[in-house]
């Protein structure tokens, strides 16, 4: 977007929307949308409170453990599927099923099996993230250029050398792409888990605020969450671009 010969930065329109929010809020049009200035003030007042920090900590903990297990299980499984045809044919149909399945339906099962707590939320998070990580790692291994493999052979690389010096790097752009999408899904998963098991983290906070009609508080937490999610997603996209420069050239 170019205005008066000056190029407006990509996300600058969010300022316009923020202004609109403020106007709608000030006009008192609806009780559910307090002015942005009020929400921002609330944001700074609650950010230091124990309840908010506890929710943030619990969410971050569930998110990190869930994502870490999805990555640690997902990448090796994906690589094995890419290498072994039998394993691939046995597992691929199920990976595809769970990739497109509405995983929210599984949360009640996790609740009865693992209780109304952190464990269920962690598993929900991992379940949201893992399938795309598996699928992309598999795709990354399968697309490795044959001549790279032959080059490794002809220069006498040992299998271990070949794996760590060639295959891993050759598949890295796809694997990272999978991890990025997986993490974005995990952000959604951790919130969905907390909403359904609403006694921990932001789920509990939302219950509290909406029961007491604390709209300012509610929006403040939403802004924090959305901003965090957006930052994570942009940061991962940046990392991926740094690695993907050679992906297009293979």
């Amino acid at each position: 977007m170019i205005l008066f010969g000056y190029r407006l930065p990509g996300m600058s329109s969010l300022l316009v929307w923020g202004l609109l929010w403020e106007i709608v809020g000030q006009s008192g049009l609806t009780f559910f949308v307090p002015p942005l200035s009020e929400v921002t003030a609330t944001l700074f007042s609650i950010i230091g409170t124990a309840a908010f920090q506890k929710a943030l900590f619990e969410t971050a903990y569930a998110f990190l453990v869930g994502v870490a297990s999805a990555i640690l299980i997902g990448i090796p499984v994906g690589i094995l599927m890419g290498k072994s045809r039998l394993l691939d044919e046995l597992l691929l149909p199920w990976v595809n099923v769970f990739l497109s399945a509405p995983l929210t339906a599984l949360v009640p099962v996790l609740m009865v099996l693992f209780g109304f707590g952190m464990k269920s939320i962690i598993i929900t998070t991992a379940l949201f993230a893992i399938w795309i990580i598996i699928l992309n790692s598999r795709a990354g291994v399968r697309q490795i250029n044959r001549s790279l493999v032959e080059m490794a052979h002809s220069f006498g690389a040992s299998p271990v050398d070949a794996f760590f010096k060639i295959y891993f790097w050759a598949a890295l752009p796809e694997i990272l792409g999978g991890v990025r999408i997986g993490i974005i899904r995990a952000v959604k998963g951790v919130i969905i888990g907390q909403l359904l098991i609403s006694i921990v983290g932001f789920g509990a906070l939302f219950e509290l605020y909406s029961a007491n009609f604390l709209m300012g508080h509610f929006w403040a937490v939403l802004i924090v969450l959305f901003a965090l999610a957006f930052t994570i997603s942009e940061f991962l996209a940046y990392l991926e671009r740094r690695v993907a420069y050679y992906a297009a050239k293979r």
């Binding site: 990509g10 996300m11 329109s13 969010l14 929307w17 559910f32 974005i184 952000v187 959604k188 951790v190 919130i191 969905i192 909403l195 932001f202 939302f206 219950e207 605020y209 909406s210 509610f218 937490v221 939403l222 969450l225 959305f226 999610a229 957006f230 994570i232 997603s233 942009e234």
Partner: peptide, 18 residues
């Protein structure tokens, strides 16, 4: 575009109580 890009990355489920 920014609105939808943020929506795509954000956990919109959090809007449900509202």
């Amino acid at each position: 575009s920014p609105i939808f890009i943020v929506m795509q990355a954000a956990p919109l489920a959090a809007l449900i109580p509202l």
